[in-house]
Structure formats: C-alpha cells, structure tokens
Amino acid sequence: MEVLVFLVPLALGLGLVGLIGFLWSLKSGQYDDLEGAALRAIADDEPAVAPAVEAKPSTVRPA
C-alpha cells in the first residue's frame, strides 16, 4: 500500500496539469469560436501564405 504515496500525488498532479491546460486554452481564446474551429481543422490550406504570392504577380517568369 506504500505505492499510494506515489500514485495519489501523481494522479492529482496529472489532473492538475489537465486543469491548467484547460484554463490556459480558455484564456487564449480557444473557446471563442467553437464552430469555426471545427471547420478550420478540415480547411484545405493555410491562408497565411496567400499575400506573398498575390502581392507580386509580375515576377512570374514565362516558362
């Protein structure tokens, strides 16, 4: 039964990590747009690369 001395704090510690993780995700606004987040996961590509491509159309060399 001495093993409880390790197991109980370990279990509580893991639970606490989960709780801290939840509070952090809440604070960083991850629950602000639940519907959008669901769809973002299956979106095709990241929009962040778009401006670099679209900003300089003239630099495309003819092949």
């Binding site: 602000d32 747009d33 519907e35 959008g36």
Partner: peptide, 20 residues
Amino acid sequence: IERGLSAIPDVTLARVNLTD
C-alpha cells in the same frame, strides 16, 4: 474572406469568428 483580406498589403491579421 481570410485570404481575400490578407491579400491587402499591410494587413497583419484577418480572422473570422464563425460563431459570432
């Protein structure tokens, strides 16, 4: 929308909130 708005130069963030 996000792509269309990010394409404007000097835009640093364009994020849609679908819930709101």
